[in-house]
Design a binder for these strands. Structure first.
Lengths: 228, 228
DNA sequence: CTTTGGTTAATAGTAATACTATCATATACG
DNA sequence: CGTATATGATAGTATTACTATTAACCAAAG
């Protein structure tokens, strides 16, 4: 795959001012990704980021309402990127089993800078997704955030995979549930392999992304075939 | 089942002073559970709790290092409670399939005050587990916390279920991974049914706990039988 | 060439949070 | 009775997550 660059149209509620439009915006997003992946979201502040990009807190606040929104924005970009890759990889495939395998490969594999954003380090972004994704919806404002469309990208991928499952087995009753379970497992199992090793056979010293793919493929094909 | 009361020996690192030993300790834990389930963990502070129990911040800090530790403590109690119930329900069962079903029922079902803690509202505690569990390990200190045994209870349940799976199918390669995936799904799917409905078929207006049980049972039996 | 609009920097300030420290009082226990 | 322990009362601190104001800069429009 040739390296191409992406520019996304994301939900307008994800930001106050589109960071893709300005130099400062790109630095906020690019260095923000690095900083969060380095020190973790809890320790991250706009103050620290402003020092890193030689700007000010107030300037960052003009792009994002607060640090939570920045996190949601970054992760939305990740899922938009994943969705694009699923479309790309499944394009022209006819056999639904092949489509599903291709999609599964995309959601489980290590981030690679094939299709990329100009200013974002995809490896760092994937690290954020692994460690912080669940925090975007595990909040009191989840319903409001959901209502203004902040989670559209994630839901869209879930539906996409669910639809492929239904092509394979139209009678399967839990395609959405299985799809979201797999999406969650795609980062959770990697996290466990790094930090809570007894919770998984996946081994961070081997090729955890590949192992996770195999685990999930096993789960999937059995679940779908059995009910056929 | 007759109502019985539990007193647990939890890891000493979960608290500074054992809250089960004193009146104040029990109020911290009991009212803390209520308050977190009401306002969410982010909005929760020791200040607010101290007002609610007519005590002081400083007194609460004598029991728990910080609010994160209190959350870890509460959730550890939940999983210890679940583990006890699994042991109780699987006791004397011989057929591993039956054991697995019984365990699955325990981890998926709505909290009931059958086997109980004196001061804790199990319904509120389960609400906390559904909304906050992942926050106990999605932190920068996860490795240190893990090292001092804060997550022992969760890991123990994961192993227990995994072992039953291996009784059914000794050749299954992903028993730990599947077990942790199901444990995570046991609260995640309920959360989705309440807040991000398009991510699951489980319907919060029906009997979501029962539906979740059926979803997970489907997953499980297919995964285990296929590889037999 | 000047005005204007838009972007950013600089600075200051605030309420709340997450603690820590100190001291006095109550109570319990041996 | 004396002493250890638990709690309460109070105060204080560094940091966080913002908000507000003003001034400087720059590009395009008139």
């Amino acid at each position: 795959m040739t390296a191409i660059q992406l520019r996304l149209d994301l939900n307008k509620n994800l930001f106050l001012r589109d960071p893709q439009n300005t130099e400062l915006g790109k630095r906020i997003v690019g260095e923000g990704t690095q900083l969060i992946s380095e020190i973790g979201f809890e320790g991250f502040t706009f103050k620290k980021l402003s020092e890193r990009i030689s700007s000010t807190e107030a300037s960052i606040y003009r792009y994002f309402e607060n640090k939570h929104r920045l996190l949601v924005y970054l992760i939305a970009r990740y899922w938009a990127w994943i969705e694009f890759k699923i479309d790309y990889e499944t394009n022209n495939l006819i056999v639904p089993q092949e489509k599903l395998e291709a999609a599964l490969r995309v959601i489980t594999h290590r981030a690679q800078a094939d299709i990329t954003f100009p200013e974002i380090d995809e490896g760092a972004l994937q690290k954020i997704v692994i460690a912080e994704t669940d925090k975007i919806y595990l909040t009191k404002q989840v319903d409001q955030d959901n209502q203004v469309g902040l989670f559209k990208g994630y839901k869209s991928i879930c539906k996409k995979i669910s639809d492929i499952m239904l092509e394979i087995n139209p009678g399967f009753k839990y395609s959405r549930a299985l799809s979201s379970t797999l999406l969650e497992a795609s980062h959770q199992q990697i996290f466990f392999s790094q930090h809570l090793k007894s919770l998984t056979e996946i081994d961070a010293n081997g090729d955890p992304f590949q192992q996770n793919y195999e685990f999930m493929k096993t789960l999937l094909s059995n679940a779908l075939n059995a009910e056929a």
